[in-house]
Design a binder for these strands. Structure first.
Lengths: 341, 341
DNA sequence: ACTTAGCACTCGATAGACTTAACTGCTAAA
DNA sequence: TTTAGCAGTTAAGTCTATCGAGTGCTAAGT
């Protein structure tokens, strides 16, 4: 009943499962007992490993492509690896330096920053990277400006505190002079100023009914543009990078076809985020085209408010440690960077 | 020396080349002499076809994958087909209807229109489709608006006659009050108004030196944003569609990797447009990743001025008639639609 | 001078038989 | 409980034979 200094059998099985997952991630081929036995951290014979593998297979953590082959991890195996066996989610010093220097260089336009961030992530992880911009619902509007476009339409331009610009065209067949447009612009700007867009739900009231009709319309156009912008500030890169991990052309086609549809990717990220894990492996997320992929998401916050999300999509046999690590570190840096303004 | 009513041998060879190209486009497999002989428009025996094919191969229009296989067209063969043999670039009535109804429906935002146009083209042709937005250099600026972003920067928002909005952040560590910003905005707007952006090369002059420094900076920021916007209004769709025409995973990877880099696609379109053909087949354009693809481009004009370009990328064995037809008809419609405002 | 039938020939693709090599699972001993 | 040893299983590679699609050429027909 005394404390054991040795590993228990169960402990060792966990170590073996970890070793198998990591070996498979490294080699992309089925892992045999001899291969594991030869690892420095393993001090038992291949026969013992075989026994352990046998029970790990019965428990559903490993599988054999065919009888006389080595083992590969199942989804359940990956899941356990990610949840409890993974050694570390630390990044090496080399990637850390890359990230530091990236975030200390200048990006004036927020779009450029976000887009470059996807490239950074792709380079760090060999995964497809997704970065969603700060939610316009949660940022403060800096200014709303109406500009007459032609005889029958007016364009509303919305600028938020991050320097994002949204626009919406308003059909308005009546001629409106510039000073009226300016007055409405000022009213709207005042109305939205220093509040989060989602908190503003009623239109301001103008000085006369002639203005009020356009004001009303402009207000809902602004609200609509902001709602819509949620789906537009999405940056994706690295499709060709993920695709290098797969040989089956059908798999490649499926991945390309999903990544091409940004709204699908957004939905996927939302559902993974909602699941609370931050990682969805294989069929866990339910998108069959990506059943050979894992998705890692990490939200980023600006001044304590969750603003957007970082996502990474790679093969299920990705290096979870470094991918999750990269997502974490980059999301922290991005949040900090954005809060600096 | 009299006019022959019969086909000359050379004429018939051309007809056979056309038949081979079209059969290959239809079946994607090497075309044999018997297959051609059985076509209704061919009234000679397969042996005659074989002779003709033999010389077409010697002349470089056809090739054999291996000795005992049928023929497939070479690039030179496709080129001749496109240049002189193609029967028609007409669209059927069904696609024409689709295009008509597309362009008669409402799109308030120009971005939505252009993006939907790529989807339309992809559906019509099964190719990847590219639409470049109206060149901001050639459109008239409607308004320039400066808005203070924070203590150290000001954002310039530029609206053009198409309703496109561009922006650029200006580093300006000095506090500037709103009325100064408004004054500069008005000066810049007046300065650019009713001219094409590229024709405006000197900054306006403000009322005092304090303003002039920011004015100068804002002017070059505007010029710069416009120059830069040339590369940003690009819409691409249908990557997963082209990719369905290829089985070799290497080919698929190469195509994805090019289409992902918008600037590469833009450069490609420019070079094809410059070549004057409007169609580049296989290695003609020099991008080895797309050596199994053909590119069709068609510029569109608004009020007689060439504004942007439509591009289609598909396999070399695409249906050139319908793809070229779709590009033409859509580019005309798009130009017309944009000129209506 | 062309066109055509006929035929030998070439070459990829498919299928079957055999070998090899990588691993396993089990047994029996330590 | 661990380990050595070994028989058993299976995919992958190699070899050979067969099949079939399609050619190029020859000789005869128009």
């Amino acid at each position: 009943m005394g404390v054991k200094l040795n590993f228990s059998v169960e402990d060792r099985r966990a170590i073996i499962l970890r070793a198998v997952v990591e070996a498979y991630i490294g080699s992309a081929g089925p892992v045999g007992s001899a291969q594991i036995a030869s690892l420095p951290e393993i001090s038992v014979s291949s026969a013992t490993i075989r026994n352990a593998m046998y029970s790990l297979e019965k428990e559903g953590y490993l599988a054999q492509p065919h009888t006389s082959a080595g083992r590969i991890p199942t989804e359940k195996g990956y899941r356990r690896y990610v949840d409890e066996l993974m050694t570390s989610v630390e990044l090496g010093s080399e990637p850390s330096d890359t990230i530091d220097s990236f975030f200390s260089s200048a990006y004036y336009e927020i779009d450029d920053l976000l887009s470059a961030t996807t490239t950074l992530l792709t380079n760090l992880t060999n995964c497809a990277a997704i970065v969603t911009g700060p939610s316009p619902q949660k940022t403060q509007i800096l200014a709303v400006q109406l500009i007459g476009l032609n005889q029958h339409s007016v364009i509303a331009v919305i600028v938020d505190e991050n320097g994002s610009v949204e626009k919406r065209t308003i059909e308005w067949p009546t001629y409106t002079n510039e000073s009226d447009l300016r007055e409405i612009s000022i009213l709207l700007t005042e109305h939205f100023k220093d509040k989060e867009a989602r908190d503003v739900s009623v239109a301001p009231i103008g000085s006369n009914t002639g203005l009020n009709a356009l004001l009303e319309l402009a207000f809902s156009a602004v609200k609509d543009a902001i709602r819509n912008a949620e789906n537009s500030g999405v940056f994706i890169s690295g499709t060709s990078r993920v695709v290098q991990s797969f040989d089956a052309v059908e798999t490649v086609r499926g991945i390309v076809s999903i990544l091409e549809r940004h709204f699908m990717v957004l939905g996927l990220m939302r559902s993974v985020l909602a699941s609370g894990h931050g990682v969805a492996i294989g069929s866990e997320h339910g998108l069959s085209s990506l059943k050979e992929c894992a998705i890692v998401v990490a939200p980023y916050s600006v001044d304590g408010v969750q603003m957007g999300t970082i996502g990474l999509i790679g093969p299920t046999r990705m290096n979870y440690g470094s991918v999750i690590g990269a997502a974490k570190v980059v999301s922290q840096n991005l949040g900090r960077r954005l809060s600096e303004g």
